[in-house]
Write a protein that binds this DNA or RNA. Structure first.
Lengths: 222, 222
DNA sequence: TCGCGTTCGTTAGAAGTTATAACTCCACCG
DNA sequence: CGGTGGAGTTATAACTTCTAACGAACGCGA
């Protein structure tokens, strides 16, 4: 989307049709979920019939993989932009995540939802996934932390490869990890509709979870 | 499964075939996920061809709904059994949840995974869902709690319908809620494979999260 | 014990889906 | 201005869910 360096008119056209296909795919996914995505329906919407689409994507899997890649990149970009804002902190990231998720729940589930047992994401996608972790680590590395050594911190100190050379202490790593998992827990259950009918406000619960995530504790200060 | 009161031989046979169908469906779901569930394949495995299956289930949706119901009931039963064990506490429930989830990840995702946008679960299923909450509420109601009033607790006091008349204070309700969402966050990300390649032990992280869930805090004692 | 009706399983078929193969045709590049 | 490669087409195969119509078997009641 950024590098629109299309020299030949053919490449320009091809790129345009590809994004058009993805746009329709996102519409379908937003309304009916990823499992209901139909290449045929997309082709019809574009005015061309069926197999023409295979000139642009090798198949359903390749299209979905591309959408997953875009979703990851979108979230990574949102995080990067949010953390670049002056005065940005953990709370900024949290609200960015929630806003991004509510913007298109199915896009969120495309990343953090039910995985297909056989499928393994390509390397460049997992690279973007780790790119998402960086702003979170940054945010927690700058936060004052008076941790007592939780048992998990020591374990984490020996397995900090995923931090990708980030100089944060193990306690910050753990905080970044819990930031991720707890907010995912609250968010995915909300988006999946498991809170409907319970009455309380999901946004307040999310805020309460975030609050506990940032507030230092007394004894085992998290 | 419990009430095997099948009077007529026809009903006996019918019930047996229905469970046979569900067994094959579970096998397929465990290996290929719910989206790849094929009624035709199940019929072939049972030695009968295609449309015969519609005598037993009105369609794919009804079969999946039945599987979802069974999954909920299975988890509810596991929770009930675990909380009935002498010395059972919050940690017991947590390990029960994790064991149950690891036993069949796709069954877990059938409940807490990506929702189909249009679909709305029948009432009896949501009833079982609230039945799952009861043991958690019990466990936290019995735990000593020195909470300062978090803003969310007050909000929760006004929206405690979902607790279904449980006499636990709002603080316990919040703890039960966070128990659910945090463990779901850690568990679903693990099962979805988002921890693979990060190096650390998901079980230890799960234990650390549980630890913080049960340990009372200093200031705002959670 | 015998018949009749319910239910089961079958085949046929419609309307979808993904995906491949073969063919036409136009646009662009040299 | 011609040749080539890419775009889009139809036809086809192999799937899927699901409906309709038919036959056969099973069991209940007389």
């Amino acid at each position: 989307m950024v590098n629109q360096e299309a020299k030949t008119p053919r490449e320009r056209y091809r790129a345009q049709v590809r994004t058009e296909i993805k746009d329709r795919a996102w519409e379908q996914i937003a309304t009916a979920g990823a499992s209901a995505l139909s290449l045929n329906a997309i082709a019809k919407q574009l005015g061309m019939s069926g197999p023409a689409l295979y000139r642009y994507y090798a198949g359903r899997d390749e299209l979905i993989t591309e959408l997953v890649r875009d979703a990851y990149r979108s979230l990574a970009d949102a995080f990067r932009a949010a953390s670049a804002r002056p005065g940005a902190d953990v709370s900024t990231l949290a609200s960015t995540l929630r806003t991004w998720a509510l913007e298109d729940p199915q896009r969120y589930f495309l990343i953090y939802g039910t995985p297909v047992p056989g499928y393994h994401a390509p390397d460049d996608i997992t690279a973007i996934a780790s790119e998402i972790m960086a702003p979170i680590l940054d945010a927690f590395a700058g936060l004052p932390s008076s941790d007592t050594a939780a048992a998990f911190d020591a374990h984490l100190e020996e397995h900090r490869d995923w931090a990708d050379g980030h100089p944060a202490p193990a306690a910050a790593l753990r905080r970044a990890l819990t930031f991720w998992t707890r907010l995912h827990g609250a968010l995915s259950l909300e988006l999946a509709g498991h809170f409907t009918g319970m009455g309380f406000d999901p946004a307040r619960f999310y805020a309460a979870e975030l609050d506990e995530l940032t507030a230092p504790r007394g004894g085992d200060a998290m």
